[in-house]
Write a protein that binds this DNA or RNA. Structure first.
Lengths: 340, 340
DNA sequence: TTGTACGCGTTATCAC
DNA sequence: GTGATAACGCGTACAA
């Protein structure tokens, strides 16, 4: 590959001059610039970012460490981060942990060896003390932004996450405002912090409204469409008198809705369904869902802002983002709901 | 950060010795190795991969350039590539093009500046001549693997893709075998190569069966659930006598299915719906779809194999992977279908 | 306005 | 077994 040296020789100038021209230094004559630039593009010069970085000690490299991309919820987050990184002139490493602590440690070490200037991490939830690699990261003072609900041991690092409890409370509140009194909650696995937060929001809204929480209305659903479908059928089977359903996420909500539709129960005329938005809602224009859209994209943008501040040496800050309520369709309880 | 030099000083040996120890060279005494290693880990030494790469001219860096991760179809592909890269000791850059040619060119140049050793690209479909950046890539002889259906101008690069025509043909064939004679095809945008391939497969199956292709049965649908929904309604409105629907992808299929359900037409009792699988099918256990599952994960693995061969200087090779037909439920045409 | 000397952190080579 | 020297490609600092 072409080096500055090659250009310098053919242009009969010093390497330094070429270097300056290509970085558009102010102290080079227009004539020299034109000549060198022409030559550079003719020769197909490609700068060597790593060599430059070695010299300047600035790599403009960031790392993103996530469990895996299969969860579509991360997709927009990745997009946002990559997009901001692009605009700021950073290149982004992607690494998966597959929820394995050893692998997490290993990939972090590898990115350290690449001299990344900062790291975005969705840590693997685990109990106990702070893993060695995290202690090392704080010793190194490497800018690190934790994304989403963080385990205990990440307390020392800045965190960017959505306020899931409030979001969930607002959904329930919205359904209550419409006059619903028996709202089913389709919950997820109890180890998942965000599932717990969403259930907590539901509980708080009911308490704030001075209502009892009827535990029979809280169904263990899981996190996929099929889980929601089964729970939807269960709601019908058990004749719980439900007029609205709130789900831990919108896959579950869509599943529940499908179950209702399959039994010829109309949504939203007979029942309202609410869930948390993820990528599917964009595709589900016709589905009458009330959703709290977790601002994944904004979350990515905020995470990058926090990162920038860290890079500039400013003190770490946490960001909690409000989720926005998106009301696609929702109705007050209807007479037909006795059918459920 | 700690450098070899720092360790060397404290160990009273030369930098070279430290370097050799850390790379486990055979010509260093066990005693020296033990001493240096202890010191290195005590001092928290992190190797500088970029500096080493500058010297060895091997960066062990790969780039992945895709339109965007929002399409969940890419998720498993990314996973597979990242996973293989991890095992082979490569780090992976992720870059988005957002379907913008300028941006594609720009990010490719940036990754070139990083001296990536190879590039995986999902090129932006566009007509006309080979864009300058691609010519440059072939001039540079940079190992490049094109993922998925490739535009014309990528003909010179090795390609790893699913055999979409055969997959589509098999779906149609399956529906024909069941006795369906009027199969609607919900097509996508005509610029999308994979949409065209799938339509072609449908056509071939009909031709192979000695049947005429009725162009009224080919509907321009788009690529999302809502598009499928509209086309589903259209099929009903137009009374086309359809007993089965094949869609360009499963989002469209699901949309069409929703439309049928909303009009109380049972699937698959009254009609069969077939589409291409992506991540949604996993979530749609209850949906009676016949799908051709594009082997995204295997596709990633194959792509990395091709890349490895290129890196070893072997000649480029194309890989076409068979898609597997997944029959979730499907029926022969029923009497009711006159309703459509 | 241009050029020289040196260093960034590492490794290849070869002498000791 | 170990170490001196040079080089990878580039940029900072300063001299000319």
């Amino acid at each position: 590959m072409v080096r500055l040296k090659d250009i310098a020789e053919r242009a009969h100038v010093s390497i330094m001059t070429v270097s300056k021209v290509l970085r558009d230094a102010p102290d080079i004559s227009a004539a020299t610039k034109a000549k060198v630039r022409a030559l550079a593009s003719e020769m197909g010069y490609v700068p060597h970012a790593m060599a430059a970085g070695l010299r300047t000690r600035a790599t403009r490299l960031l790392g993103l460490i996530i469990p895996g991309v299969v969860n579509p919820v991360y997709a927009r987050l990745i997009m946002a981060l990559e997009d901001r990184a692009y605009e700021l002139g950073f290149d982004l490493f992607l690494a998966h942990t597959l929820e394995k602590p050893e692998r997490e440690e290993f990939v972090i070490r590898r990115l350290l060896a690449r001299r990344v200037e900062g790291l975005f991490v969705i840590p693997i939830p685990r109990l106990g003390d702070q893993p060695a690699i995290y202690s090392e990261l704080s010793r190194l003072k490497l800018p690190l932004v934790v994304l989403g609900p963080a385990p205990e041991f990440c307390a020392g690092f800045p965190r960017v996450a959505a306020d899931e409890i409030s979001a969930s409370r607002e959904i329930t509140q919205h359904l209550l405002d419409l006059g619903h009194r028996r709202i089913a909650f389709l919950s997820g696995r109890s180890v998942c912090p965000s599932a717990l937060a969403r259930l907590e929001g539901y509980r708080r809204a009911l308490r704030d409204a001075g209502m009892e929480v009827d535990d029979r209305l809280i169904l263990q659903a899981g996190s996929g469409i099929e889980d929601g479908f089964q729970s939807g059928l269960e709601i019908i089977r058990e004749s719980l008198g439900v007029t609205a359903i709130q789900a831990v996420n919108d896959l579950v909500a869509i599943g529940a809705m499908n179950a209702l539709l399959s039994q010829h129960i109309r949504v939203p005329e007979d029942v309202s369904v609410a869930g948390f938005g993820n990528i599917l809602t964009a595709e589900h224009g016709r589905v009458p869902l009330t959703t709290a859209r977790e601002p994944k994209f904004r979350l990515g943008v905020a995470a990058m802002e926090v990162m920038q501040n860290l890079l500039r040496g400013k003190p770490p800050e946490n960001r909690t983002l409000r989720a926005e309520l998106v009301i696609r369709a929702s109705t007050a309880p209807a007479a037909v709901n006795a059918a459920i």
